[in-house]
Design a protein around this nucleic acid. Structure first.
Length: 806
RNA sequence: GGGCGAUUAGCUCAGUUGGCUAGAGCACCUGCCUUACAAGCAGGGGGUCGUAGGUUCGAGUCCUACAUCGCCCACCA
């Protein structure tokens, strides 16, 4: 028997262990059709927050749905523990920078610390009821993943899609590494816009340049004006004298200069921004670095040497001001580009680095994107926009420690690149030696391993390859190429999704997955993203699960429309709790009436049983449709709404028959038993997608025809009760109106209706007569008068037997 | 500056290809201890669907413009 109260604390722990012990979610290559899900390996770089729960739950529910639909679900889980996010975590914990700790020691710490966090993540996700096969778990720092990532690199090199080149790149003076365009973010900052007087060397003619970046004055290599600028075009060809710095640079013409922006005169440095790089390339301008890698003025400017960018900006402005060169200063707010990992303003540098070709294949990437089905559809626009706007090849070199090493060495004499062979992988070029003893080019016997490591996305972008155990060349490759589904939030469309498509294109000339579902974010208050930094204990996922149950937490997480942010509030959890309670109570009721029930073929259903069965079938069609569109929230809404209707209306009707067979007969009672038995099973199956724990508990008690409800099969009920659905709804409506009358008179629902007088159409008349016993019992009707009419129906009179009438 | 999304009850949100008096939960009000459930049940009040036009027999839904909010991108001298 089901307990009087459902104790989620005890039951959730119990079933979690049961699922693990019985390997319920194990993926095994049987004959069933495979449905494979490429789910984001969470970055193991901090506390878990509600945002994780939200976006992972929705994809997890799809896994459950597909499993119930008869698919062999391939649903592995991964941890993304390599790269800058982990390094920053370790730096934060240790209070030291990576280079202060040293490469070897630092990497060791990274392994240790990320492993601890992994355990925490695993525990939480299991507890949440994530139905992954933990045997398929992968880590992006594992030797296996490193091998696949290196294989991917070599394959791209072989296909000439990856190259090594000295080229300008984005530089972070905080993380001390180059990074990719996708890792740029914009931030609004307050700064000053300064109008500074320059003069020509030749005739001392004064002109003004406006800039926010005074510290770049020593890096000026050229001044540009627009050739069509009447006010300034006569300056072209002369030389500009830079105040304070006391050097001259040429004044040149370029169309890109906007006449009406600033003063119409622009200084060009190496490098202030992307336009500088463009001009540097176009006009073959000299290179003038004034910063050290960590963002301080270098030896080339002795006067300001050692100052940080910010300090130099202030000092130079002060000097300019003292020299009388500042015409005016405006305070402005403007958007600057920052490194997303640390928030530091971007700098530019030139280094020899590895790039993946993006710019030559944009069209192909757009075509790939078009072949994938996006849910919701409009998210494809974000992808397209990103691909259309991307301006740099993908720089995958990072001057860091904790990442996948490039499998290459360089000849010490001629610089020739020596690639590892596929068979040698995985390798670490700083430890392992190349298999050849001398350089085929120059014969030199000394080699240096590549010190840079790969961008974290260079590995994350091969999760489909990791999933298919790429290097083993077994049949996973055929089965999982492409995978069925990618699931992630919209923030990583331009990174994870885009880069995965890039890799898949180069490796297989194929899309990596057939479908992609994009979820939104969980936000705390009004558009305030849930972040680990703000994580107070109230929003701590473990606390929430302990307080409200994993099922209720999932209920909250399932809500909302795909791609849309949802606000975290207690209301969703309470609503989930209420639903769980209702499911429990109705199951208890049903169990109570099934003690003598044997399931057998039966077709002699009572009228209103047909009504509810038919209604269920109708509802389930919509439910399935929503799930097929990956709309877990809408599916749950559909199901839940019908479930309450079932409890409040149908159960109230059928209970009389169940309680009193002597009055209603054994067969009508059996019909009711069969109906609730059948429908509860279906309800539990459908709800199990969202509420796996409570559904398992009830299923095991009442049905247990399989080891677990989660491996049963969703089968459509095959009945044709359309007519009963239409007329049953009308009967339900009449019941509701009579109840309303009782309520309006402040009477109990058990109040006897001494007379109910209805005029109704032939159809309704027949329907009521078919359901006459249920109808009268439900409303406690003493006398019923039915008159025929052509119209639908009219209630002529409801006579209630009040206390004082007795 | 370009794009995408949102704007519906006090709050959080549904409303599928345009179709009866616009829905749910929470909150509020009135009843009801009905042999599953008072964490419940039956009712009720509350919305000129962001604004202004347009198409249509008919618009929350389609079109145009605008406003506010959010996100993405570009510019950022």
């Amino acid at each position: 028997m089901l307990d009087k109260k459902y104790d989620f604390k005890e039951k959730e722990v119990k079933w979690l262990k049961y699922w693990e012990d019985n390997k319920i979610y194990e993926f095994n290559s049987n004959n069933k059709k495979i449905y494979s899900i490429d789910t984001p390996p969470p970055t193991v770089s901090g506390k878990i927050h509600l945002g994780h729960i939200f976006s992972y739950s929705q994809a997890e529910m799809i896994a459950r749905y597909k499993r119930l639909s008869g698919y062999n679900v391939f649903y592995p889980f991964g941890f993304d523990d390599n790269g800058l996010p982990s390094e920053r975590l370790v730096e934060k914990i240790k209070g030291k920078k990576a280079h202060e700790i040293g490469r070897e020691e630092f990497n060791k710490l990274c392994y240790e610390i990320t492993s601890e966090y992994e355990e925490e993540f695993k525990k939480l996700f299991s507890r949440l009821g994530v139905s992954t096969d933990w045997n398929l778990v992968y880590k992006t720092v594992s030797l296996e993943a490193i091998k696949i990532s290196q294989l991917s690199f070599l394959d791209l090199v072989a296909k000439k899609a990856c190259y090594h080149k000295e080229s300008p790149a984005l530089w972070c003076s905080e993380c001390l590494t180059t990074f990719a365009q996708a890792e740029l973010e914009t931030k609004t900052v307050e700064t000053t816009f300064n109008y500074i007087t320059f003069e020509t060397k030749e005739d001392k003619e004064k002109f003004t340049i406006a800039t926010t970046r005074c510290e770049l004055l020593p890096a000026i290599v050229c001044v540009f004006v627009n050739p069509k600028d009447e006010k300034h075009k006569h300056l072209i060809g002369k030389r500009a004298h830079i105040p304070i710095i006391d050097i001259d640079v040429p004044i040149m013409a370029d169309d890109k200069v906007a006449i009406d922006k600033g003063t119409g005169v622009v200084m060009c440095c190496t490098f202030g921004d992307q336009t500088d790089i463009e001009w540097w390339n176009k006009y073959n301008l000299p290179l003038k670095y004034i910063f050290t890698p960590d963002g301080k003025i270098n030896d080339s400017v002795p006067k300001y040497k050692g100052l940080t960018i910010k300090e130099a900006r202030e000092k130079i402005l002060e000097d300019l001001s003292n020299g009388g060169y500042v015409v005016k200063t405006e305070s402005i707010e403007h958007e600057v580009q920052v490194h997303e990992r640390c928030g530091k303003e971007v700098e530019y540098t030139i280094m020899k680095q590895w790039f993946i070709d993006i710019m030559n294949h944009k069209e192909d990437f757009l075509k790939m994107g078009a072949k994938i089905k996006w849910y919701p559809k409009y998210m494809k626009v974000r992808y397209n926009e990103w691909v259309e706007n991307v301006a740099w090849d993908w720089c995958i070199s990072r001057q860091r420690y904790f990442g996948v090493p490039f499998p290459v060495w360089y000849c010490n004499k001629c610089g020739k690149i020596i690639y590892a062979s596929k068979e040698e992988l995985p390798i670490n070029p700083l430890v392992d030696k190349p298999r050849i003893s001398s350089c085929p080019n120059c014969g030199c016997k000394e080699f240096t391993g590549e010190k840079d490591v790969m961008d974290t996305w260079a590995t994350s972008s091969v999760t489909p390859l990791i999933n298919m155990r790429y290097q083993e060349k077994d049949n996973y490759e055929d089965i999982l190429n492409p995978m069925s589904l990618r699931a992630n939030a919209y923030d990583i469309i331009r990174t994870w999704d885009f880069y995965t498509i890039v890799k898949s294109y180069y490796h297989f000339n194929n899309i990596p997955w057939e479908n992609i579902m994009i979820s939104g974010f969980a936000v705390v208050g009004k558009n305030e993203k849930i972040s680990k930094s703000k994580g107070n204990s109230k929003n701590d996922p473990i606390n929430i699960i302990d307080t409200y149950s994993a099922d209720a937490t999932r209920y909250w997480a399932a809500s909302g429309k795909l791609g849309t942010d949802i606000i975290f509030n207690e209301e969703g959890l309470l609503r989930g709790k209420k639903l769980i309670n209702k499911i429990w109570n109705v199951s208890k009721f049903i169990e109570m009436h099934l003690t003598d029930f044997n399931d057998k073929e039966f077709n002699d259903f009572e009228y209103l049983d047909k009504w509810i069965i038919g209604s269920f079938i109708k509802m389930e069609k919509e439910f399935i449709k929503n799930l097929d569109n990956y709309e877990t929230g809408l599916a749950l809404n559909t199901l839940e709404k019908f479930f309450w209707h079932f409890c409040d209306n149908y159960i109230e009707i059928v209970k009389h028959r169940l309680y009193r067979p002597e009055e209603f007969g054994d067969i009508p009672r059996y019909s009711g038993q069969k109906t609730v038995y059948m429908l509860l099973y279906k309800f539990l199956q459908n709800f199990s997608i969202f509420l796996p724990y409570i559904c398992e508990e009830i299923y095991q008690e009442l049905y247990h025809d399989q080891k677990s409800i989660h491996i049963t099969e969703l089968k459509e009920l095959k009945y044709d009760f359309e007519e009963e659905v239409v007329n049953g709804d009308i009967i339900c409506e009449i019941i509701s109106k009579v109840r309303g009358e009782k309520s309006d008179n402040n009477l109990s629902l058990k109040t006897v209706v001494s007379l109910l007088d209805i005029t109704c159409s032939d159809n309704i008349n027949k329907a009521i007569k078919n359901a006459i016993k249920d109808f009268k019992a439900t409303l406690f009707i003493d006398k019923l008068k039915l008159n025929n009419s052509l119209k639908s129906y009219t209630i002529n009179k409801i006579e209630l037997l009040k206390e004082d009438n007795k």
